[in-house]
Each structure stands twice: as C-alpha cells, then as structure tokens.
Design a binder for these strands. Structure first.
Length: 918
RNA sequence: GGGCCGGUAGCUCAGCCCGGAAGAGCGCUCGGUUUGCACCCGAGAGGUCCCGGGUUCAAAUCCCGGCCGGUCCA
C-alpha cells in the first residue's frame, strides 16, 4: 500500500468525503463539504465558538467519562492511567503520551498488552512548551490528559486499523460531543517519534485540533523505514481541548480551571481582563503564533485597534493574564509530578520538578506573593483535582512540605542575586558580557531578566544582549544515551551462552536450598554452566553466592556467579579440566554468606516499607546493595532524617522483625500485580517480563524482586542503622547491619574504643577533657615562649643595628631556631615602623639554613632584597627569591661562622654602595 | 548522566589571572565616652586558606585526584 492509499479509508469512500488541498498550507485533507483551508490553525482563525454543537458544555471530568464510556461500549477495555513519571522507561523521565505507557515492552512485542483493543485517559506532562504556556490561550499546556484508544495488530491477530479508527473518531465527535459531521476535517500528516513512524490524521473542529490518529507501522533505522510486524493504532484525543470546544470559553484555562482562574487572579493581585478583550484576543489568536514575542505584540495592537482601547491597557491585561495562566498550569504540573513521588533535586526527574516549580516561583516572587499564598494556590488545586487524579489528594502533606522548602530555597537564591551580580559588574570591563550572562544563568541560576533587574537596583543599567537566548539554547545538546552496564564477563562467553537453555533456579524454588545435584551443560574457560542451580547470581543489588562444586572426586571453589539471560555462569577455581557436558555434579553454597545476604535483603525491604510509612510515597529506592557485612539502601527524600527520626526508623524495623511476620513470594501476571500493588512494586526497575515475582513482607512492603529472602522477618534477628547520609540533592543513603553482623559491628566499635582508651591510658570520657585542658595549657606556654623569642629578636635587631646613611641602617642577626611564621611577623612589624631598615635574619639549624631579608619602604627603594639574596646565594649556594622588600634563601645544610661573616660582608657592602649617595 | 561556578576568621566576602609576609566589613571580647542603651573612639581575640598528592627554594595562588555545596542541561 502506498502512503497515499492508506489515507483513503472506508468512511471517506462511503460517505463521500473529498480529498482537498488547503489553500494556505497546501496539505491534503478530507472533509464532506468543500473548504478553502484545512480547518486547523494557523490556516484559519478559531471559530469553534460558532460551531453549533448538539452537546451542552462539558467539564473536563465529563469529557473524560464520555470518552472512556464511548470506547468501552465499543469493545475497548478501560485501562487505569499510569503515573506521569515514566519509571518503567530508561529513555524518558515523563509520560508524554498514552502510547508511552506501552513502550517499549508491548510495542517491541516483549509482552502482550493488558487488553486489546484498549482505551486509556492518561495524564501527560510535556515540558518542551514550558516557555510558551499562557501566550497561546491554552493551546500549549505542560500537562494534559491524552485520551487514547489503542489497537495492536499482530500478524496472527488483527483487531482494527485505519477504517475503524476514523469511523470511531467520527462517531465519537458527532454523537458524543455533538459536532456536525460537516465541521470535521481530517488532515493527512506524518508522525514520527521514538524510533517509530507512520501516517496520521489530524482531526480539527473550527480551527481547533482535537485529536491525532496515528497508524504506527514503521521502524525508523538510519533514515530507512522498515515495516513493523506489529501495526499499532495510536490515537491522542485532547481531553482539555474537547472541554474547551464544548464550553467555548475564551481560553482553555477557563474551561479547565473554572473558578480557579478568578481566584488565582485575586491571590496574585492581578486584575482580570474584561470578557470582550479576551473574546477579541480569541478571535485573532488562531492565525498567529503567539509563542513568538513579536506576534504577541502585534496581537495587542490588533485588539487595541478593534476595541479602541489604548494598547498600554491591553498590554497590561494580557501580560497579567499570561502570568496567571502560567501559574495555573505549572502548579498543576508540579502537583502531578510531586504526587507521583518525584523529589525535587538537581538531577534526573527531580530537576524537572524543580524546573517547573522555579518557573512559577520566579513569577510569584516577583509579584511578592507570600509563602502562605503559594501554599494556598497548591492547596486549592489539590482540592480541585483530588477526585480527578486520586494520587493528588493523598500526597498533600508531602506536597505542602516540599513546596515550602523549595520556595524558601528559591527565595534564598534571589536574595543571593545582588551580591553575585555585583561581583560580575565590578570585574574587568564595565557592564556585563555575553559570557557573564551565560555564566550567571548556568552556574548561579540567575536568568538574564533577573540579572538586569537586580543590576538596575544596584544602580547600573545593563542591556541584555540579543544573542543570549541562542547562546543559552545552543548549549542544550542532547547527552549521549546511558551506556549499557558492563558485565564482568568476556564477550565471546556471552555469545556462546546465548544459545544455551535456561537454568532451573533452585534459589527461587526455595531460598533455603543449600545443596543440589545438577548436570553440566557447558564449560567455557573457568565458567561452568549447569542445568539447575542453587547458586544466586549477582543481581537486584544482592551479591553473588560463594561455595563449592564437586565433580567426581574433584572440588572446585565457586568464586563468582553471574547470569546472562536465564543462563547462570559459575566461575570456579581452579580452572576445570576434563569436565564433559552431561556429567552430574554436586553443588553446595556457602550458607553463611548466603544467609547474611538474605538477612540484609529482607531487612532492606522492611526498611523501605518503614520509610514509606513514616515519610510518604515519595520514598523510592534509588539504589541498593546487600553484602555479607552490611546492607545499603539509597532512597529519594528531601532532607536528612533527624536523630529522633533515625531512632524511630530503627524501632519500627525492629518491631516488624519481632512481630515475626511472614515473607511470601508469588509469581503474578504483570498487569495483575500492578493492579494489586501499584507502581511502588517497581523499586529496583521494571522487569520486562509477562510474569512478575512479587516478594511481600506482610503488611509493610511488596516489591518485584529477583533476590532470595527469609521466610519470616524474625530471622533478620535485629537491625541497626550504622550510617545515614545525603549522597546527593534529593537522595538519602542508609547503611545498616542485621542479625549476627550486629554483633560484629558492636565488636568493631568496642575495638575502636578500646584502642583509643589504650592510647589515652584510661577511660576516654575522663581522660579526653583533661588532655584538652593540657593541650590548651601547652598552647599558652608555647605562646609565652614565642613572645619571649619575639622580644629577644627585636632587641637583637636594635642591638645589631648599623647605620649606613640617613636612608639606611642594617641589622644582621643570627639565631638557632627556624620559626618562619614568627620571624616573618617580627621582621615585618619592625620594618613598618622603621622604613629605613634592612634586616637580615640568618636562622641556622643542623640541617637547614633559612636567610630572610626584610626591608622598610625607604630602604627597599634603594636596595632590592632579591638582589641581595642572589648575591648571598653566589657565596653559600642555595636557592631563593622573593619581592623587592622581602626575600628568602633556603639551604638544606647548616652554615659555619665564617660563612655567616661572608654573608654579613656582602650585605653591608651592597647596602653601603646603594645607600651612601643621598 | 554531563557541563559550569564555588569552598579563605563566627557570618558576608577580597586576595588566586601573574606563586614570595593571611586581609576587609559585620559580629564577638575588653577599654574609653555615656545616668543607661545605641552611636562613636581605641585595643584585642579569632585561620587545617575543604582534603590528599604533585611542581617549586617558596603554594591560599599553578597542575592532578577526591570530598562537599550551588546551578544549568539531558
């Protein structure tokens, strides 16, 4: 089928739609009546307010309900929405479309979709339009609900494709939204993204695009299109836009947020624009690209002319309204992200949350909105959306705390701004260079507008260079995709193993199996592959088992265990000889190692459950490792636990241990597990398998987990945190010991205290204060001696003083202590009071000589200290240098009296030479 | 995950480019002034120049590695 043919769907033939060319964008489109344009902006103005609908105005919630119901009645199963944070994906942070829910596992045919066909109303977050929100009256939003009905057509199971999709869309819009069919237009287009591509229809009504119907059918590789075995119907209905269409409000924000629009205007102390201004804007907005500041300005001119209202007034109305629309949109986006458990930070998805928050905070701080009012803005939306987005309601405590924290953090940044900007203003060239602006933004977080504003307040007007935005944008290069983890196994081994059958995982059958019999499947160098094994391969943060494999009479030590796919490799020592495939072997794992791993692993699950219980659902595992000696768990959280909280955590974990709760595992279909446990199931990543192994610690935690666990929490034995630290913004690390390791840990502590006490010779708490007092005494005594030494130096300087002329006198003294710090101080003080003095201090220690020359201002104008030092070096050797009034020469030997005299002679000679003339 | 900026007295920072004697303001202590306080005047205490290594006669300063904080981007 050619690309053009695919657009000739059944409905167009049967209902006599005609293929037409848009007079404006030249694109092909289909509609029943003849039209001049394709019916989408910017080829037409918005006129959907004039389209007679058979439906009453619909709220967001009503549109969603109708949408789901329509498709459910036509054989689609309703799927619950996924989080807006795409934790199941490696390549994106946020759910940007309904299809993202099924990528890559379903689209790559790794597992079957949860239903087929299906329908979903998926909340999505897209931040690429962050800068244009508001200006376009709601055409661009950072969060929206994408209604998607999807059909996955396999080669052996056809569901439906282009014909049915267009018919369903038409029926939905005409019957459920009440759009007259003559008003529908289907524009032919091409969609591409995420390595896939296909033709699509853009469905518009009265200038508003309300749905995109994509027929995903190609893989894109090196610019070539390869037909996919799976053909996917990927549709996106704009639930917000449909609500806007039916409500015919001047902006989408009025349709989405209702009364909140007015409330936000009040909180932000911004006057609401008169209805006729908004209506006039609406009528002009379609053909303009209002993201472009120039076009936004021309819009103001047009409206001003039409309504005969001064442009300044229009400008004031619109600029204010845009700020309100931004706030409405960003607060909701932040709310969605935070209630899905994102912790704001400076990297990863946490940064995206902070980005959104800061964007709106920038507006609010400038308007002088108080923290309380900011929290009110979040609370109002929480109340407005808690039924619509269930997670939003339950996260309010967390949201409140984190928003307050972030707002304060941002205010601190703004408070710091003047001192930072001042630094840049006062260095080098006047004003600010392009580089200054870039650095101020990227290193200090100060956007150009804020810099200009702050600078003006500091009394210096600066101009923002036009190139700044492109300079900032050009740095936004895509970072390379995460590099794959390197397995500690040679490539040729991996290749060979791929063809081998899966090993039966005895450690999953029963994690208490210590001994087993198995058959050899392959031997590759020092790796032995078995048909079944109780050896746990490294994975899921649990280290590999150790143990022995016996073949006949020969024993091999297992030093590492890895898995590739479902094949388990046992690295053994010594390198196996003469082991043939098919031979029966006997394996025995090192139970002490394994049991420690199990204790720490189960303890980790309990800890995570306890942390979620104490702090909330924003606690996500960010990394974990279970060793013999200790366990480690990194979680997302916004502040370091206090000493009290740490104790509480320990008590809670130990309580669960004491209650001897059962730990059970069950294998469940992926979608069932998600329904029962939710997304918090996936703490260590999302397994791309149809069946999920769920480990459940009764009443506190359930996770998809590959590791080995205890049967009962009592076996953990005991739990103690040994270290809690913040490893990066938004991530807290917990380290802990369980069971007998607790005793080991206590032993180590005792050992430390004992050796410390041995050193101090007694009870630490008794001795230490005394030592500190003694140290202080010694310090004071030393001070006295140094004072004494200082005085003796000064009196020496005075005693040895030889007047050369009225400009110069010289003091040359020798001592037996090198105290660089003190002598430098003394010399400096002296020459400052006696500017006509040259002092040479010769400090001689057994293996070192230090000659320091210091000069007052008057003396140094005649005699260069560096020159003196060089002359001395010619006689006694050594290296040195310095400045005109202060120089140092160091020898790594002591010098004789005769040499001292020589030095003296050289100095005097030179000073006489230079100072005797007036 | 990557880039950039920073870490010096209790606090805010200068000094670093171009190596050569550890600085300022605020705060603190004491004294003067004052009925008292504030102001003012005078004196003083207070330093692991983030840590480690290197180069050098000499490192806060230059080079390398690390830690911590900030920030931007993916």
């Amino acid at each position: 089928m050619s690309r053009e043919d695919i657009f000739r769907v059944r409905m167009f033939r049967e209902k006599e739609y005609s293929r037409q060319v848009c007079g404006s964008c030249r694109a092909h489109f289909w509609s029943k009546p003849r039209r001049l344009d394709c019916g989408d902006t910017p080829c037409t103005d918005y006129y959907f307010d004039e389209v007679p609908l058979k439906s009453p105005p619909l709220s967001l919630s009503e549109v969603r309900e109708k949408f789901l119901k329509f498709f459910q009645e036509r054989g689609h199963e309703v799927i619950d929405p996924y989080p807006v944070v795409a934790r199941w994906r490696e390549d994106i942070y946020l759910t940007i479309a309904s299809i993202a829910v099924f990528q890559p596992h379903v689209t790559k045919m790794i597992i079957q979709p949860p239903a087929n066909p299906l329908v979903i109303a998926q909340p999505c977050v897209r931040l690429e339009d962050l800068g244009s929100v508001g200006y376009t009256l709601g055409r661009h939003l950072t969060n929206f609900i994408m209604g998607g009905h999807h059909a996955f057509n396999y080669s052996d199971r056809y569901v439906y494709f282009t014909d049915e999709t267009t018919e369903l869309a038409t029926e939905f819009f005409t019957k459920y939204v009440g759009v007259p069919e003559d008003e529908l237009s289907f524009k032919e287009s091409w969609w591409e993204g995420g390595g896939n591509a296909g033709p699509c229809f853009e469905v518009s009504v009265g200038g508003l695009e309300v749905a995109t119907l994509v027929f995903m059918m190609y893989d894109v590789a090196d610019g070539k299109y390869v037909e996919m075995p799976l053909k996917i119907v990927d549709t996106g209905y704009g639930i917000e836009r449909i609500a806007w269409l039916t409500q015919k409000t001047p902006t989408a924000f009025h349709a989405i947020y209702g009364d909140l629009v007015s409330t936000y205007h009040k909180i932000m102390d911004i006057e609401e624009p008169p209805k006729e201004v908004l209506r006039a804007v609406f009528k002009k907005a379609g053909k303009l690209d209002l993201r472009d500041p120039n076009q936004f300005e021309s819009l103001k001119k047009l409206v001003s002319y039409e309504l005969r209202i001064p442009e300044g007034e229009i400008s004031k109305h619109l600029d204010g309204a845009v700020l309100v629309y931004n706030a409405l949109d960003h607060v909701k986006t932040a709310l969605l992200m935070l209630s899905d458990g994102v912790v704001p930070s400076n990297s990863g998805e946490g940064y995206l949350a902070r980005l959104v928050l800061r964007k709106v905070f920038r507006i609010l701080v400038k308007l002088g909105v108080s923290v309380d009012s900011v929290l009110k803005m979040f609370e109002l939306q929480t109340l407005a959306w808690r039924n619509f987005h269930p997670r939003v309601g339950s996260a309010w405590n967390y949201v409140q705390e984190v928003v307050e924290l972030e707002y304060k953090k941002f205010q601190e940044l703004v408070d710091r701004a003047p001192s930072i900007v001042k630094k840049y203003l006062s260095r080098g060239t006047p004003g600010l260079s392009l580089e200054d602006y870039v650095e101020l933004h990227e290193s200090h977080g100060l956007p150009p507008e804020l810099v200009a504003e702050v600078s003006l307040k500091l009394g210096q007007k600066v101009y923002i260079p036009r190139e700044i935005y492109s300079a900032l944008a050009s740095k936004r290069i895509r970072a390379p995709i995460k590099k794959a983890e390197v397995l500690p196994i040679p490539v040729e081994v991996v290749k060979r193993v791929e063809k081998l059958p899966a090993a039966e995982k005895l450690f999953h059958v029963d994690s208490y199996i210590r001994e087993f019999k198995a058959r050899v499947i392959d031997v590759i160098g020092d790796y032995i592959v078995l048909d079944r094994t109780a050896f746990y391969p490294e994975g899921g943060g649990q280290k590999a088992d150790r143990g022995r494999i016996r073949v006949g009479s020969k024993n091999y030590e297992v030093i590492d265990v890895q898995k590739i796919g479902d094949v388990v490799l046992h690295k053994v020592r010594p390198e196996p000889q003469d082991i043939s495939v098919g031979l029966e072997v006997y394996g025995e794992i090192d139970w002490n190692v394994r049991y420690s791993h199990m204790r720490h692993h189960t303890a980790t699950h309990i800890l995570l459950g306890v942390l979620r219980k104490i702090y909330g659902d924003h606690i996500w595992q960010a990394g974990a490792e279970k060793e013999v000696a200790k366990g480690r768990l990194d979680v997302t959280h916004f502040k370091l636990p206090t000493a009290e909280e740490i104790k509480l955590i320990e008590r809670e974990v130990n309580r669960i241990i004491n209650e001897a709760r059962p730990v059970v595992f069950k294998v469940m279909p992926k979608y069932d597990a998600e329904r029962v446990y939710g997304f918090k199931l996936y703490q260590g990543g999302v397994p791309l398998e149809p069946l999920i192994r769920v480990v459940e610690v009764s009443g506190i935690d359930a996770e998809a987990c590959f590791g080995t666990h205890l049967r009962n929490t009592a076996e953990v034995g005991g739990f103690k945190l040994i270290n809690v630290e913040k490893i990066q913004d938004g991530v807290i690390r917990f380290e802990y010991v369980a069971g007998p390791q607790l005793v080991e840990y206590a032993h180590q502590l005792e050992e430390k205290i004992n050796s410390a006490e041995k050193l101090v010779g007694g009870e630490l708490l008794e001795r230490l204060p005394r030592f500190l007092r003694e140290l202080e005494d010694v310090r004071k005594t030393l001070q006295k001696y140094r004072e004494f030494y200082r005085n003796s130096l000064v009196s020496d300087i005075v005693k040895r003083r030889e007047a050369i002329s009225e400009n110069c006198s010289v003091s040359i003294i020798a001592t037996e202590i090198i105290d660089e710090k003190l002598s430098a101080e003394v010399l400096k003080d002296y020459v400052e009071e006696n500017p006509a003095t040259v002092i040479a201090l010769i400090s001689i220690e057994p293996k070192r000589t230090h000659i320091e020359i210091s000069e007052g201002a008057r003396a140094s104008s005649r005699v260069d200290a560096v020159d003196l030092v060089n002359r001395i070096a010619e006689i006694v050797g050594g290296k040195g240098g310095g400045k005109r009034d202060h120089a140092v020469l160091v020898l790594n030997r002591s010098i004789q009296d005769s040499e001292v005299n020589e030095v003296r002679r050289v100095i005097l000679e030179r000073v006489r030479e230079l100072c005797s003339t007036p």
